[in-house]
Nucleic acid binder design. Structure first.
Lengths: 155, 155
DNA sequence: ATTTTAGTTCATTTAATTGCGAACAAAAAA
DNA sequence: TTTTTTGTTCGCAATTAAATGAACTAAAAT
């Protein structure tokens, strides 16, 4: 593939990653900055470079970078004699990803339990349905735990 | 627990479920209608009852119900000699939940592969990170498959 | 000491989403 | 045939979210 073609595709990919990240609750600009830091060959960007590259205001950049850092998906480093921050992507590992899924499942589990507890008739259609899903989710969560340790041992 | 107390808690729970469902991409009214149909002892509501119960316009109700049906989380039934539709919650099972997670993981996987493919240097910091996560996600997805069949066999 | 750099904060603007009401449609009832 | 019931559709208004610009701060450079 030609160099210019490759770079064009990288930019397109950033856009797609952006839309994907939005579904994880990132706002548009934030979502695309994360894409930038993951995709491009240059893997460390200063504040101004990001403002420049993404054509956004300094305030947007500032807020986006703070959010990404809070979420732990980027970090910055500095170099001696250089006041600028160099922002870069931080890789999560599979255990974090699994832990995240587990957390959301736990929340759903909890909600279902509450629904059941508050039912007048614990054998109502919905109560039965929910008990069934609840059991499934419990099975799933237990096994997520196993998967985590299994993967750890594998390496 | 007293009856009135229980019903009050059910209404509070609907609100919490509403906020939770919003994070799954449902809009506010839609998210809460789903809560209503899951939580209350009355498990089948007509259009008008929903309008009444949620204090929303007919158009909001109409749109919300269509969305919920399209997403497959509610359905409606009718009874002979009664033109009204009776809406009710439809329970998903754990396999659907797992399949949903798997789908999202596949998307992330695909994106990571593309990032790596488009890197000038395949041994760059980010490329290495991503290869590592990619491997983990692959492991995870494989085992999700196993989990699904394992759970099926269990019953 | 003052100017520049490297950002942050906050009030405002812009844009997108959400919900509403009025008009409409199709079937059933009167 | 006309009226009522049970919804749907569509343009508009209100709300909410996102991005901006201007003013500001703290540290470094001149």
């Amino acid at each position: 593939m030609e160099e210019s073609e490759r770079i064009k595709k990288q930019r397109e990919l950033i856009e797609r990653i952006g839309r994907n990240n939005e579904r994880d609750g990132f706002q548009p600009v934030t979502a695309r900055i994360l894409g930038l830091l993951m995709v491009m060959d240059k893997e460390e960007y200063t504040f101004d470079e990001i403002v420049d590259e993404m054509q956004i205001s300094k305030s947007s950049a500032s807020n986006a970078l703070r959010n990404l850092e809070l979420r732990g998906v980027i970090e910055y480093v500095t170099y001696p004699g250089d006041r600028k921050r160099y922002f870069r992507f931080v890789s999560g590992d599979i255990n974090e990803i699994i832990a995240e899924i587990e957390k959301r499942m736990q929340q759903k589990l909890h909600i279902m339990q509450q629904i059941i507890e508050l039912k007048k008739n614990p054998n109502s259609r919905n109560a039965k349905f929910l008990k069934n899903v609840l059991e499934g989710i419990n099975f799933f969560i237990e096994n997520l735990e196993k998967l985590k340790t299994e993967y750890k041992d594998k390496r």
